[in-house]
Each structure stands twice: as C-alpha cells, then as structure tokens.
Simulated scan of single mutants.
Amino acid sequence: MTTLDTRRAPDAAPRRPAGVRTLWLLAALLVLAAVMVASLAYGSRDVPWADVQAAIGGADGTLGEAAAAKRIPRTLLAVVIGAALALSGAVMQGVTRNPLADPGILGVNMGASLAVVTGVAFFGLTSPTSYIWVAIVGAAASALFVYTVGTLGRGGATPLKLALAGAATSAAFASLVSAVVLPRNDIAGSFRLWQIGGVGGASYERIGQVLPFLAAGFLLCLLSARALNSLALGDELAAGLGERVALVRAVAALGAVLLCGAATAVAGPIAFVGLVVPHTCRLLVGVDHRWLLPLSMLLGAVLLTAADVVGRVVARPSEIDVGIVTALIGAPFFIYIVRRQKVRAL
C-alpha cells in the first residue's frame, strides 16, 4: 500500500465551500438536460424543437417526432452508462488510492468482454440478463487479477504498476476476444460492433434489464462515500477512526464492479470515461467523495451523451461509435496524468 503524502501537491484541488459545490451540481444538471435535448434533436437528420417536445410527450405521428422518439431510449442509455462508468472510475480511484484507476485502463472492461464472448461462443448464452451476470463475474475476476499482479514486487500496488498490469491484461484479453470471435462467423459481425462500445442498439427493454444491476452498484458506491474519505487518510488512520478497512474496500469495489460489468454487457467496453470525469470533478468540488461521486455521475452522463451526439453529427449519415470518441478524448488525458508530477497516490 502506498504511503499518503500529507503535503498538498501544487496541482491539488483546493477546498471548495458547500455553496460552490452545490452550484457545480446544479450547473451539471442543467448541462445534462441540455445535452439530452441535443441528443434528441441532432443525428443523421436534425429534428425541430417542436417535434422534440412532442416526442417527449409521447407523439410519433410525423417523421421528425418518430426520429426523436426513437432517440429517447438511446439517450437514456447513454446517460445511465456514462454515470455508471464515471462513478465506477471514481470509486476505483478511491479504493486503490490510484489516480490512474479506470475500468478500461485496469482491464476490468476487457475482462467483462472476454467473459461475455466466451459464454456466448462456448456455452450458448442467449439471455441478456445472463450476459450481465457473466460480465460482472468477468469484471470481478479481472479486477482481482490485475490488483494481485500490481502488488507483486517492491513498493506494493503503486499507480504505475497497476496501470501497466491493467494495460497488459487488457491487451491480452482483447487478443483472446479476437481469437474467440474471428473463427465464429455467426457471432463475429455483432460482436465486432459491440467490442468498439456504443449505445446505438438501445431500447427500453435493454434499459429495464440492466437497471436493477446499475441501481445496486449506484447504491453501494454512494453509501461508501464517507468511508472512502477515511481511506484517503491511510489504512491505519481509517481503522483508528472506526472504519473496517477491508469491508469498506470490498463493498465499494463490489459496487464499482457491478457498474462497469453491467455497463460493459449492454454497451461494450467503453474506456476513459472513468478516468477523465473524476479528475475533472476534483478540480471543481475537491476530493470529498460525498460531493465527488454525485458530480462524477452527472458529468459522466454528460460526457457519454455528448460523445454520442458528436459521433452521430460528424459522420452523417453514418456515425462514429461512442467508444471511439471517448478514446480520442481520454488517451491524451491519460498521457497527461501519467506524466504529471507527484502522481503516486490520491
């Protein structure tokens, strides 16, 4: 376990008054509402505002209303998946005290992907609910494997060791996914699109299937907020404050695994949302997880929904999957975080 440097780093987020934090939460809500409206209005064809309003009210009589109505489940799925990935990343960073933690970077998403592909190819899985359960198991196994590898050697689980172990594991799992899928022409086409990551196949049925798993993950993560603040002080001090450190880590990690596993099962392995959003939120509201986690959910939903809109608009009449857009945003940010000084621990 890395030691906590009690000196404030030069780029550490300053403490924010409660009023400022509340304003940021409200601003994030307004931005999310605006992005959701943009998601209904813009795509392969633009929809007038009047038709968007009518579609929200349930109308689908005209071509514009039907187009906007069809985009509603896609928008809702982008919101919940973005919130899940961002919250999962923020909790992983808090649990491991690793500023590089992210479901994609640590190989958790690819572990879930490999589990789903293996289940479909070799065990004949067909039920969407079974996809989710298998993805969660794969995500948990991958997270445990990466953390175990990252703790080997001197210094324990340092951020860079975990990131390297996660990157190697992710690459290995991606190769295994390709090895499983390529010989199977019956599943190769659909899984090739799913591997990129996107929300294009959204439906109310799919949202309903994944929502209970996401709700459980949201609840576990948000209930862990105060305990994660204690963990940031170090394990010994957290135990002295009455926290059961092992239990706190297990519960918070379970919530994060539920979120990224369920999100991957539905939308594919979308990377970097869980890295970019929590770091941005720390600049806005500081490191208190009671504020950081809710804001991460909101801005994660904003980022993924906006990325989906951008992907639809820049390649009309086709579209760029949201996983590609988030990678274009997140990869430079990841390089910046790695190169930043004093990135040993949160």
Rank of each mutant, 00 (worst) to 15 (best):
L241R: 02
S178D: 10
V310F: 13
G323Q: 06
R290F: 05
V20D: 08
L292T: 07
P14F: 11
N185C: 05
L214V: 07
D5L: 05
A250F: 12
A171H: 09
A307N: 05
L283F: 12
L241F: 05
V91S: 12
G311L: 08
A9C: 05
K342W: 06
A306L: 10
W291E: 14
G274H: 01
R344L: 11
D235A: 03
A252Q: 00
P278I: 00
A121V: 09
A59T: 02
A331M: 13
L220C: 03
A345R: 11
L23T: 13
G107W: 07
I335R: 00
V120S: 12
I324S: 04
P128D: 06
A115C: 08
N185S: 15
R71C: 03
Q53Y: 07
S39P: 07
A225M: 12
H279P: 02
E205F: 14
R290M: 08
Y42W: 15
L85G: 09
L114P: 06
S113D: 13
A345V: 05
L303A: 01
I270E: 03
K342E: 14
A101T: 01
L40Q: 12
A9M: 07
I105V: 14
A9N: 11
L144C: 06
R184D: 11
A256Y: 05
D288I: 06
V137C: 09
A55S: 15
V37D: 10
V266I: 15
G217F: 01
L292G: 00
A301R: 00
A90H: 10
G330S: 04
L219M: 06
A143E: 03
E236H: 05
A202Q: 04
M36H: 02
A84S: 15
T169N: 06
D60M: 01
A67W: 09
A253E: 05
S203I: 12
L303M: 08
F123D: 01
G57H: 07
R154K: 12
G268P: 02
T3L: 15
G43P: 08
A262W: 11
K70W: 05
R249H: 09
L295G: 06
D11E: 10
S175L: 14
Q195S: 08
A28K: 10
L346A: 14
F145S: 08
W194C: 03
C281L: 12
L160I: 00
V245W: 08
G201R: 14
V181H: 00
P17L: 14
G138W: 10
L32M: 00
P17V: 10
V245C: 03
T96G: 08
F333H: 06
V52C: 12
A167T: 13
P269Q: 03
T169V: 10
V338L: 15
V251G: 13
V302F: 05
T280R: 05
A41Q: 11
A263W: 07
R312M: 11
S113E: 02
G208D: 14
A225E: 00
T126V: 01
A239V: 10
I136S: 03
A171M: 13
D51T: 03
R226W: 12
V134I: 14
L106I: 11
L193S: 03
A188D: 00
D51A: 13
I320S: 13
S113H: 01
G255S: 11
D46G: 07
M92H: 15
G57F: 12
T75L: 04
